[in-house]
Simulated assay, not measured.
Amino acid sequence: MTQLRIGLLGAARIAPSALVRPAAKVPEAVVTAVAARDPERARRFAAKHGIPTVHAGYQELLDDKDVDAVYNPLPNALHARWTLSALAAGKHVLCEKPFTSNAAEARTVADAANASGLVVMEAFHYRYHPMAARMREIMDSGELGTVRSVETSMCFPLPVFGDIRYSYPLGGGALMDGGCYALHLLRLLGEGTPEVVGAVATRRDPDIDRAMTADLRFPGGASGRITASLWSRRLLDFTARVRGDRGELKVTNYLAPHVFNRLTVTTAAGTRRERVHGGHTYTYQLRAFTEAVLHGGPVLTSAEDAVVTMGLIDDIYRAAGMRPRGDLD
């Protein structure tokens, strides 16, 4: 295989920026097919973006022998079902975050991925940008000393309450949407897997959080806090802060560092500000996915990693007095 032929499950709004445009910059990747719940929408999408094949449904796309891998940007509640179907059809999968509705689903998918030998990657695109590596380098350098606290945020305004991100049956909620980013970054910046010690939700309705704050504790004793919102007083916040006994790191715009970013390190030696240069996060992600499939490259956001994140999400919902997403009966 010299080129990875990718099929798109659903003509989602995120697909052009997350897959179609990056594929134009990654020579070893090509988008060859699309399927959508509405076939006419799939045809329009294909015509607009130059995708040669349109399938009548998702399973038809998975049965296409000219498709090697799929991108799964379907609603959260459908991630597990169609990732499992893709694996059963022998396809590699790039699945949008959050990986599944809950940890039990994530475990099922991870087991299937391990048994298949296929590449399954969760689409935390920020993790593949050089900024993520630089953040981890600073943490590993020891210049902050012993870490005392890690705080991460992912807040943006979405006052469109009919959006699927406010739907419990479709796996919605602020924690599921932006909160999974904040939680993933918290894990990247901290040491070891944290445990949830408390959470407070601001609810849109009994089952949907429009904002969530959760407190966690790392094995070494450092505290963690995530803040996420779809609609709150905190409109735009894609930041992080790590406090150690010898210094502090502030992170600005980890989500879209290709637009703008800043790392600010303050120690006894003074304050240092860094900019990390690089292209679009989605291009790095697609390149990493392609390299993993074609050449055995590393997968930084694996199915096993997703099991840990989804377990913490379940625990946060329970700590906030809410039901985790999905059918857990």
Rank of each mutant, 00 (worst) to 15 (best):
M1D: 14
L9Y: 02
G10R: 04
A12S: 11
R13D: 15
R13M: 15
I14V: 15
I14W: 11
E28P: 09
A33D: 04
A33K: 10
A35C: 05
A36H: 12
R37H: 08
D38S: 09
F45E: 02
V54D: 00
L62V: 15
D66T: 14
V67D: 01
P75F: 13
A77S: 15
T83S: 13
L84K: 14
L84V: 05
L84G: 12
A86V: 08
A88S: 09
C95I: 11
F99Q: 15
T100A: 11
S101V: 04
N102Y: 01
A110H: 03
V120T: 13
E122G: 11
A123D: 07
A123W: 01
H129K: 12
H129W: 10
P130W: 06
M131Q: 05
M131L: 13
A133Q: 14
R134F: 04
R134I: 00
M139S: 11
G142Y: 14
E143L: 06
L144C: 12
T152F: 00
S153D: 06
C155G: 04
F156P: 06
L158S: 12
L158R: 05
G171W: 00
G179Q: 03
C180Q: 11
C180E: 09
C180F: 05
A182T: 06
L185D: 14
G190N: 02
G190H: 02
E191I: 07
T193M: 02
G198A: 13
T202I: 06
R203T: 13
D205S: 06
D205W: 02
P206S: 01
P206R: 03
I208P: 01
I208C: 01
A211L: 03
M212F: 03
R217S: 08
S229Q: 02
L230W: 05
W231R: 07
R234G: 13
L235K: 15
F238T: 01
F238P: 00
T239D: 08
R241S: 09
G247C: 12
E248L: 13
V251W: 01
L255H: 10
L263D: 02
T264I: 07
G270E: 03
E274C: 02
E274M: 05
R275T: 11
T281G: 13
Y284I: 10
R287F: 07
F289D: 14
L300E: 15
T301C: 12
E304K: 09
E304T: 07
V307I: 04
V307Q: 00
M310H: 06
M310Q: 06
G311C: 03
I313S: 05
D315N: 14
Y317F: 13
M322A: 10
R323G: 01
P324I: 07
